[in-house]
């Protein structure tokens, strides 16, 4: 199977804080890949690395056969036209209506006439169920609608790859259901490849073809959703079952509590 995205032995640090030590994963074409992990392990950073917004300290990141960190600006921008990202906040442009937000990438990167742009935008909005909201401003949308509008914008240019950053975070059960369904159906109908970064285990595993669990600066488990559910490793079990304590410690610091109370670090 052709791989659309390939990360090999990626090392990355935010300042002095190492985030990844030898992270490797692959994303086959046409699949929905889930990347899960506890908060703060740099899942968003992973998407930024793939999108070329950040550069790794070491290792290789290939998208569609191109080594992303080595691309010059023009080539990177050319590659980005084939990928898009759904940000956690939606990141809609607040000074434009929903229609103009979705039309934005088309107006920027194509020479299409306004008539054709209108048709494309309406098709994309119809796909996410927001055709009727085209004249609203982002401030008039609910959280779930904003994310769907952003999704319509993300698919405006028919990308090969779409990256979802925590698409389910902060959504009510209905919007969550809608977004789950949209990710799956868009992936199938448009022939996309999707990377879904999330810690909503149940939702993401319901649509993923393959999933990676990241913790401790690397991939600690991978497999199809069923394989992961049957995985007996402590950390995978803790993550999937949501246990408060385990290999991922509940306490931020592991100093001895009694010593600390008695002023041991003074």
């Amino acid at each position: 199977m052709t791989q659309l995205v390939e990360l090999k032995d990626v090392h990355f640090a935010h300042g002095d804080r190492p985030l990844y030590n030898g992270l490797s994963l692959t994303v086959p074409k046409g699949k929905v890949i889930a990347v899960m992990g506890p908060s703060g392990i740099g899942k968003t950073t992973l998407l930024k690395l793939i999108g070329g917004q950040l550069k790794p300290n070491k290792g290789s990141i290939k998208v569609a056969g191109e080594e992303v960190p080595k691309l010059n600006r023009d080539k990177l921008y050319e590659l980005r036209k084939r990928m898009s990202m759904l940000f956690q906040s939606g990141a809609l442009f607040t000074d434009m209506s929903v229609f103009d937000n979705v039309a934005f990438p088309l107006r920027e990167h194509t020479e299409l006439s306004e008539d054709i742009i209108r048709s494309v935008v309406l098709m994309k909005l119809e796909a996410v169920g927001l055709r009727g909201a085209r004249d609203l401003m982002p401030s008039e949308l609910s959280g779930g609608m904003a994310r769907r509008a952003a999704l319509a914008r993300a698919i405006a240019l028919d990308p090969d790859l779409i990256m979802y950053d925590e698409p389910f975070a902060g959504q009510d059960p209905i919007s969550m259901g809608v977004i789950v369904k949209l990710i799956k159906s868009l992936n199938q109908s448009l022939g996309l490849t999707s990377i879904v970064v999330s810690h909503d285990v149940k939702e993401v595993l319901s649509i993923a073809d393959y999933a990676y669990v990241i913790a401790d600066k690397k991939v600690v488990g991978e497999g199809t959703p069923d394989e992961l559910r049957n995985n007996n490793t402590d950390i995978i079990k803790q993550f999937l079952q949501g246990d408060a304590d385990g290999p991922v410690a509940f306490h931020y610091s592991n100093d001895d509590f009694t010593t600390d109370l008695l002023g041991g670090d003074k």
Partner: peptide
């Protein structure tokens, strides 16, 4: 803060 600048970059717009 609302990631609009990042999203411009990801849309290949400087």
């Amino acid at each position: 803060a609302t990631e609009q600048l990042s999203s411009l970059e990801m849309m290949a717009v400087d």
